[in-house]
Design a binder for these strands. Structure first.
Lengths: 199, 199
DNA sequence: TGCCACATGGCAAACCGTGCCATTTGACTG
DNA sequence: CAGTCAAATGGCACGGTTTGCCATGTGGCA
């Protein structure tokens, strides 16, 4: 295993290559659209061989999605570390906080990324897959805390929806309120689900 | 436009070809796994030219997913026709009923299909895309009924989760109860979200 | 310095999907 | 019934992604 805590010259170069690929892909995708950019173009822009792309990333889509692994792990840890409030809701709130902490300093990049994804069905599909994995993770965490599996699945699904909605509202609003306010808003909306709307 | 209500000899042959492709793909995918089956193999098994596959379906994945279009339209109609109960919940119940009505007589095929999808990440991604489209549809329907857009998005997400859970429970249980019982069960579980679990 | 492991790059091949063109076959008219 | 037209099909070649294999170079370490 390559130890990430041992910044060899080798490791440094490796990361530089990775970063170059991600940056090149990001720029090209944003400018010309995902489908219009060939992997050959990415390779040239990143100044690496075409074959090297596939040594760092599983496929073309991964140029955009691989960086999310860190996020996934952070949310996993946060979910596992959340206090046991009996309802399981704390799991989601903690995960959202952890996610926001990582996403906050990258808002600008995330907006570009979201733009690319929004214009490309194949990428939306991949995004959904990522969310499904996350939801499975929450389901397992809830089961581990004693929820019956079927209920865990349902709670995880609804929790994911609320968490996603919270992050969406937080990211899309230019001058957003604090994350806590947004979470409270989502909770409030979710609490009124069965009641008639009074616009 | 080809009128589906005019079963020409041409139209009949066309449908026969379509069905042959779907059946051939289904069998091959189920036996060897999606990735291990080439489109050439499907073409040979269906006794059509490889080029013809792409005149009936957008891509390899569509051999499995195109049949869902009917389901999508039925759910759309049912959602639009649902009575306005003020909360929007009727929209989901009606859509689930319509879906169940179509899926019921195909349970056996659906199980095989689910097996194939479960073993293939690419197909899971596509499945997610389909659900996202459905969710967007619910969101629009709720907005049309006067819900504020943000709340509509959240309600649609949660409703989709519950509807999906209901259909999942209904399909996976060999000797399932009535659909109404299952829907009631999901509603009950959803209603206890904020309360601690008492296993 | 010299050896070894690892990262890279090039090449060829398999597979998916599409544009183009020729051929077949059903539909419709007089 | 024959002739014409449109639709469906099939073959071919090409561009694009992804993988296996092998050769080359570069850093790590004794």
């Amino acid at each position: 295993m390559t130890d990430p805590a041992a910044p060899n010259l080798r490791e440094i170069k490796k990361r530089r290559t990775r970063a170059a690929i991600v940056a090149a892909a990001m720029n090209l995708f944003d400018e010309h659209g995902y489908d219009a950019v060939t992997v050959a173009a990415v390779a040239e822009a990143a100044e690496v061989g075409q074959r090297t792309l596939y040594r760092h990333f599983a496929d073309k889509e991964d140029f955009l999605f691989a960086p999310d692994d860190e996020l996934h792990h952070a949310m996993t840890r946060a979910a596992a570390a959340a206090p046991d409030d009996g309802t399981g809701l704390a799991v989601f709130v903690h995960a959202v906080r952890a996610a926001a902490e990582i996403l906050e300093p990258q808002r600008e990049m995330l907006v570009r990324r979201a733009r690319v994804i929004a214009r490309t069905p194949a990428l939306q599909a991949r995004e959904g897959l990522k969310q499904a994995a996350l939801q499975q993770l929450f389901t397992d965490e809830l089961v581990r805390r004693g929820h019956p599996p079927e209920r865990a699945r349902l709670v995880a699904g609804i929790g994911m929806t609320c968490a996603g909605e919270a992050l969406a509202r937080w990211l899309e609003d230019p001058d957003h309120g604090s994350l806590d306010e947004i979470i409270a808003g989502v909770e409030a909306d979710a609490g009124t689900l069965g009641t008639p709307i009074h616009k």
